[in-house]
Design a protein around this nucleic acid. Sequence first.
RNA 1: GCCCUCAUCGUCUAACGGUUAGGACAGUAGAUUCUCAUUCUAUAAAUCGGGGUUCGAUUCCCCGUGAGGGCACCA
Length: 465
Amino acid sequence: MSQVRVRFAPSPTGFFHIGSARTALFNWLYARHTGGTFILRIEDTDQARNSEQFLKLIYDSMTWLGLDWDEGPNPNGVGERGNYGPYRQSQRGAIYQKYKQQLLASGRAYEKDGAIWFKLLGERYKVFDDHRKKEVEKVKSLPVVIDDRIRGKVERQEDEDFVIFRSDGNPVFHFVNVVDDIEMKVSHIIRGEDHLSNTSKHVRLYEGFGVTPPVFAHIPLILKSPEMGQGKMSKRDKGALIEEYQQRHFLPEALVNYLSLLGWNPGDDREKMPVAEIVKLFDLPAVNQSNAKFDAKKLAHMNMLYLLEKPPQEFAGTTANSYTVTTNIGRSARETPDYFNQVMAITQPKIKSIEEVGPYTAYFFSDEFPIDAKVKEKVMAKGEPKVRLAELIAALPAMDFSSDAAIEAGIKSLAEGKGLGFGDYQAVARLAVSGTNAGPSITSIFRVLEKERVTQRLQKLLASS
RNA sequence: GCCCUCAUCGUCUAACGGUUAGGACAGUAGAUUCUCAUUCUAUAAAUCGGGGUUCGAUUCCCCGUGAGGGCACCA
């Protein structure tokens, strides 16, 4: 029986950020690894900045990534699950009042300037603070020692009383965070290193409530890559939003795998691992202490690896879902699935991301495709392409289109009859049927396009050049 | 300004105090395939600086330096 209870506590005040996703992921991994409980709690006390749109984005992004939660609001936003709710802080006002009264009653909180302050224990003295340009009251309190699972022992002095309820009556983050973690029986707090300095406040609050603090584990931050500048990834940075990866049709399992490797490793050289394997191996002491810079290229590579190994019908399905009926490719996926699947089967081994599939296969789904002028110039300058085109057109009616091998044999025998090679026909034929110089093997393009369309396209190029 | 954290190739990272400092991405050069992509082979690339401790330091300690974070009636 595991008693691990971890939570991810985002606030719906902006887009779902890659750093938040990684924090959610590490919590989820730890919960799944230990057989514990993963809680989603919504920290929506900042009423001015909250929005339902961002709330939905949190549910959608986590669902997309496969980070399912055991307690918290339901993914569709209606109702919630778990025995420690409500799971939205905006609905927990009564609980916060109760805890406030407890501190007031025990003398660990007091009112000043209309706000409620938490009272530190120790001798008081006044000092001028250069930074804030005013005199402040300090407290000689004992240092707080945190035994962090990732950082080791961290000691910090908390030397000023701090606000727990604003003068508008609303509780502040530090207070609600601690109260909720107590109420929800959170056993391990796994969060970003940006909270490490806040932790001393939290520990003092736990003490004030007479509760033993949970285990803390502060994970490193995700920083910008060198070409993006300095500092931690912010919402404005390219590639910082989960939504963006979703829209670009990245595979969530690839993103999860990549993210898991930012600040953690399995202890050997393996990188690409199924999520079940990561769950099995993940543990807090193995998490790194230093911040990691985000590398979009490595993520793209990981995405390609997952794409290449996907079963063909799954790949076709994923691609179909990525394009709406308003596009040629999307219409084909719904109206001529057999044809669509054939195109996807020859495309999958050649591309690196699903967002490439549309442009890469456009000529399969419309006879109106652009001819790359540079490629045309190059192809037409070499040898006698128009003669080859004419020869190919003449040979097509008798050619066997039943398989790639048959087509290859057909073209080869044509070439040999003229004392030429397969390559003498390949480039110009490709230009005619696809308008470009990159793509699946010419034989498979022929087979999928079928003889009639191939003939038409060859004739069209011959006529226009 | 005060406080906290961190420091190995460009990037992510590995290395019981004893290794020719390993792997991956990105570079570069070749090979292969009908193009492109994949794949394969090779190649270049790092222990921030200075002091200690030790027979021996990437590893432990101290000081610098650099990077990141926190210092609110934001979360």
